[in-house]
Design a binder for these strands. Structure first.
Lengths: 349, 349
DNA sequence: TCCCACAGAGACCAAATTCGTCCCACTATG
DNA sequence: CATAGTGGGACGAATTTGGTCTCTGTGGGA
């Protein structure tokens, strides 16, 4: 019998204690050096109770503090890694992964512990998992197409300052969107290329294009070059958004958004809006990756986490347009219950 | 990194919680059905704080209660076994065993978790360990000589009502001593023989005999028969007592006891009193096992636990008259520190 | 048949701990 | 030099924990 299972049976409260301390350590690791108040806010705990835990952890020699704030000691950092697998164990994420992978019919599903909605550092873990997977599957000479978004941007940052010497070509799958430069597909492509040790191309085009201008854009040689690369990409790495969030980022007004939602759109990926069953309810007219290109790409990886994105994940995955999914526990558990409910109602009929 | 080690680092208090609950479960298992007050006394805890733990454990479905008292549910019993190895792990008893075995120059040292002085149920665990070892080493046709004492009596009780079909001959190593029939070597021999599935012989003689009467006793054919068996015993299983305790049990008066102690006696085994270095400071004149018989016996097992018996264990083991020792953590740790101190003073010279 | 010892459950008050919420001195940073 | 952020301290309220007593029920022994 596993030690964690025993603990679960005889002293479950001790496991929640450990879990909370893990969250604290992880948050500190992400934010260090950070003050009590900021940390308390990030963790959604009261300052006082957090302080007590911090004092204990300090006693245990896992962290230390100075006038900049608290930060992990090397012992704490070491422990953080061990804790991660412990938490995975205690949450039984392994079987969650397996079950959900089968239910969704994916080639591969990776779930990291935690919920991005509750803890921002989980997004970093998600990004690290994506990085590991990329490193695993990419070969020299491969073409990697990437989308934009906050999650993808994190994936880029998960690569440290150095490079790992993987000679790949990274290209943006879609055009520019919104105002934040850091989350543009172009930026992500550049960052990933640097981290991987490869080269990148930029797609100088907006994400949404009036059909009338498409032709003009496509006449541009450099754009056509990138688009040709997209069509023969070996790996596609894209984020997943809720319909609402992406509609707002695209600057759709209230009326258009209402229309989208009334059509049943819950998720978005590479410019397409999906309903829960995976049907496309709206497609942005754009240069870059088109739906028909997907079939040619052998490996399509979706990355996205947080309980709030469960519906979006469900819609995109149901479409069958991706075969690898990297998400977090919050989303995965919600997804699981959604699927169960769906099956129940289907059996009910 | 082991889960227990992680817990130790990040939440040591949770481990003491688990340990306490283990003690409670173990005590209940030994005493069930038992009332709160009796249990609190057995564990040396206040009734109130024990009640809280009992309520929690009841919530967890590990135990239940009726008007007879509390008792383990099957889940609790299952968990008890798993907990035992967990506690062993967390106390690092494996390395304690190894280190001490080397320090004492034993062929085999077995340490069970806990301290017989503090928890009576540890004695039961000690007995179970002794039973397991006996079952491991005894073969059909072997002759097993046993001493008396409370610990040995427990070993006998560790065998259930059935027998395990080991055709051995069990004999008492020494004569009768004191008033309690259950802890006589004769009783232990009978009980063990029944548990093992073998036969036994009784030694109808007192433990201490005036030298003048020895000859008379030895002329008795049945006594001579048993003594002959003792001399060719394959395994000797004996308890270990503190000098004081055994002197009292033998009815020595205050003066004789003071004399023994002034001579440095700290431990007793099969009628011989040893000082800390293992020298014999006093020997009872007796029928039964003699010192010179020991060399002929290939396997000599000493059983005894409790922090208070550390000195006694040290003295008996130092003598080199036993090669296997089964004890508990309380005694073992104390023993370890005694040995370390001794080494330090030796190095100091 | 009765009685008593021991069982669990409940109650109540004191002590300890935890928690929320301030304030304060300090220090990098702009 | 102002400011925003830091750790640390303080203090009363709230909660939890601990100690002790009582009550009722029950089963075993006289």
């Amino acid at each position: 019998m596993d030690a964690v299972a025993i603990l679960q049976e005889i002293a479950p409260e001790s496991l929640s204690l450990v879990e909370n301390r893990y969250r604290i350590l992880a948050a500190i690791h992400a934010l260090a050096p950070v003050g009590r108040r900021t940390l308390a806010q990030a963790l959604g705990q009261s300052e006082r109770s957090l302080r007590r835990e911090l004092d204990r952890l300090k006693e245990l020699g896992l962290l230390d503090s100075n006038h900049h704030g608290v930060f992990l000691r090397t012992e704490g950092f070491r422990l953080l890694g061990s804790l991660q697998v412990l938490i995975r164990d205690s949450h039984d994420i392994g079987s969650l992964e397996r079950d959900l992978q089968v239910s969704l019919g994916l080639n591969r599903l990776i779930v990291v512990a935690g919920d991005s909605d509750k803890d921002s550092f989980v997004k970093t873990e998600l990004a690290k998992a994506a990085k590991r997977y990329l490193v695993e599957v990419l070969h020299n000479g491969d073409v990697l197409a990437v989308s934009g978004g906050t999650t993808l941007s994190e994936v880029g940052q998960a690569f440290g300052p150095g490079s790992i010497g993987r000679k790949v070509t990274v290209i943006p799958a879609r055009g520019g969107l919104g105002e934040d430069v850091n989350i543009q597909a172009n930026s992500v492509a550049a960052r990933l290329a640097q981290g991987l040790g490869g080269t990148y191309r930029l797609l100088h085009a907006p994400d949404t294009v009036e059909p009338a201008f498409l032709k003009t854009l496509l006449s541009e040689p450099r754009i056509r070059h990138v688009i040709a690369l997209i069509r023969r990409a070996d790996v596609l790495l894209h984020g997943i958004g809720t319909a609402e969030e992406m509609a707002k980022r695209r600057g759709l007004d209230e009326e258009q958004l209402m229309h989208l939602i009334s059509e049943g759109a819950v998720g978005e990926a590479f410019g397409y809006y999906f309903d829960p069953k995976g049907s496309i309810v709206f497609a942005t007219s754009s240069v870059g990756l088109q739906l028909e290109d997907l079939a040619r790409i052998p490996r399509k990886i979706a990355v996205g986490g947080g309980r709030s994105k469960a519906w979006a994940l469900l819609s995109v995955v149901s479409a069958g347009y991706c075969d690898v999914c990297i998400t977090d526990e919050g989303a995965a558990r919600r997804l699981m219950s959604l699927i169960k409910k769906r099956e129940e109602t289907e059996n009910g009929n």
